[in-house]
């Protein structure tokens, strides 16, 4: 009898392996936590998009819960995301933009065309701040608490549903 049962072992092994692989199919590899979660916003020293002479650093993010949105004129989904960001700004969320791998002219044109929800825009033409943030595509959004610690990270386009169901609750949570 036990011998018979032993013959079932390969089948059991196959089923275990099969279910792991099946679960693997439904995992979205882009939904992974930022390596910077619960860490300080990286140090930087960059000019703003509006004024090349105005240099800002990470202290810009202290004192208030802030959404940092990494965008670029070259990024099509950033355009689709703008209405949601404008909505968030209207609801009183503080937004700071990072104009990533862009030119000043194009970045300014973008804001003229699609609206400007940002209190200020950090101009990052070389993508150095983006690199330190682990950004590998735009848009990406980071929620920074009043102590400058990254508390939430969203990869890709923020939908109106995301605004209601994740972004606003997260902002409230850290306020």
């Amino acid at each position: 009898m036990t011998r018979r049962l032993l013959l079932l072992l390969p089948l059991v092994g196959f089923l275990v392996l099969g279910s792991f692989l099946y679960l693997g199919l439904s995992i979205n590899p882009f939904e992974r936590d930022s390596a910077l979660m619960a860490r300080e916003f990286p140090a930087f020293e960059l000019a703003t998009l509006g004024d090349p002479d105005q240099v800002v650093d990470e202290s810009l993010l202290e004192g208030e819960v802030t959404l940092v949105n990494v965008w670029g004129e070259w990024c099509p989904t950033c355009k689709q995301e703008m209405p949601q960001l404008l909505d968030l700004a209207e609801r009183g969320v503080r937004l700071v933009g990072v104009d990533y791998k862009d030119t000043r002219d194009k970045g300014r044109d973008f804001l003229d065309t699609y609206g400007n929800p940002f209190e200020i825009n950090i101009f990052d033409p070389e993508g150095t701040l983006g690199f330190d943030l682990g950004v590998y595509g735009a848009p990406e959004t980071f929620l920074v608490d009043r102590d400058g610690i990254i508390r939430y990270h969203h990869t890709g386009y923020i939908t109106p549903v995301d605004v209601r169901e994740t972004i606003l609750p997260e902002v409230e949570k850290w306020r």
Binding site: R32, D33, A35, F131, D132, L133, G134, Y136
Partner: peptide, 8 residues
């Protein structure tokens, strides 16, 4: 690299 992009 891991500090920025994770174990991924």
């Amino acid at each position: 690299m891991v500090e920025r992009f994770g174990d991924y």
